[in-house]
């Protein structure tokens, strides 16, 4: 079984452990053994060290990477920010000077950064290493006929030059679309496909501005595709869609019911037949109806002997 270092970040293990649980359920089924990176910390998030000192950022990121290096594995994460931060840090560390300085800092905690572990996002990993066909072969409930709007999230798209795996066209991302379609679902295009959801620093700095941006995107999704659910591979986007639709609805800024939102691996775990109370248990929007629909009898794929 292929081993990979599972880098959790903050939001997934602390706020949305059902997403973490969905990783832990689907990966072994797909032939991947996730190894825990014991003692891994925050990546560090954009608002922390990266906003204070480049070198401290690189030192904390590289500490996380060394945990994987010691195990001789690459890193996979489900959080776009972590993916972006770690990938960019790795990019900065290609500079000999920076690497030298960071290793001086790391020497105080008996660590050395080498640069041998690559950083993958779980969506990229599923798409390129596991493959759409392998995913299709593990689907228990076909999501045929369901309509999904995808939200890839910024930090796996740009800047494409620092990522190990880049979309063919980051302005028209297809990795998540392919993954969703592997469950049998329909994934229509909408014009603000690559637009920002407004989460992150923007939301904590000025929630009104954040919501303005979010609303524009949400309306594009609703009006142009009217989906059964929104599927994302970014934990931050997930939180924005899950929290802010309710706010807009409450304020009367939207006239439709909030669209259930899932992290992609939750959708996959449900399609693979895992228990919703473990893999899709925490959300503000009520998802019970759509989950029941997804795991309904008639969707069972007939086993081929």
């Amino acid at each position: 079984m292929e081993q990979i270092g599972l880098y959790l970040g903050c939001n997934i293990p602390l706020k949305h452990p059902d997403i973490e649980q969905s990783f832990r359920k689907i990966l072994p089924e797909l032939g991947v053994e996730p190894l825990d990176l014991e003692g891994a910390s925050c990546c560090p998030a954009w608002g922390t060290a990266p906003s204070f000192d480049l070198q401290t950022w690189c030192a904390i990121s590289s500490r996380n990477i060394t945990i994987a290096e010691q195990k001789g594995v690459d890193i996979m994460t489900g959080c776009n920010s972590c993916f972006g931060i770690l990938s960019e840090a790795k990019h900065f560390l290609e500079d000999k000077e920076m690497k030298k300085k960071v290793n001086e800092s790391l020497s105080a905690i008996n660590r050395t950064y080498q640069g041998t572990s690559d950083i993958y996002h779980i969506a990229q990993y599923l798409h390129s290493k596991v493959g759409v066909d392998a995913i299709k072969s593990k689907i228990k409930y076909s999501l045929d006929g369901l309509k999904m709007a995808t939200q890839t999230g910024c930090h796996t798209l740009w800047p494409s030059d620092v990522y190990k795996i880049a979309e063919q066209n980051p302005y028209e991302p297809t990795i998540l679309k392919d993954l969703c379609m592997a469950t049998g679902a329909e994934v229509p295009h909408y014009s603000r496909l690559a637009a920002c959801c407004g989460m992150g620093g923007m939301r904590s700095t000025d929630i009104e501005k954040s919501l303005k941006l979010f609303k524009e995107k949400l309306i594009s999704i609703k009006e142009e595709t009217d989906p059964d659910m929104i599927v994302t591979t970014c934990s931050s986007c997930f939180m924005q869609f899950d929290m802010s639709q309710l706010i807009l609805r409450e304020r009367g800024e939207i006239d439709f019911e909030p669209i259930p939102t899932f992290y992609y691996t939750q959708v996959l775990a449900l399609a693979m037949g895992f228990d919703p109370s473990q893999v899709a248990a925490i959300s503000q929007i009520d998802r019970s109806k759509i989950i029941a629909e997804m795991q309904s009898e008639q969707r069972l794929v007939k086993e081929v002997a």
Partner: peptide, 25 residues
């Protein structure tokens, strides 16, 4: 070691995971 920290134990238990994640927390 986490920029955002909320006590995760109840939620983790609920979804069938060990209460303490293997992170720096």
């Amino acid at each position: 070691g986490h920029a955002v920290f909320t006590d995760p134990k109840a939620n983790r238990k609920k979804v069938g995971l060990p209460e303490e994640p293997p992170t720096s927390a």
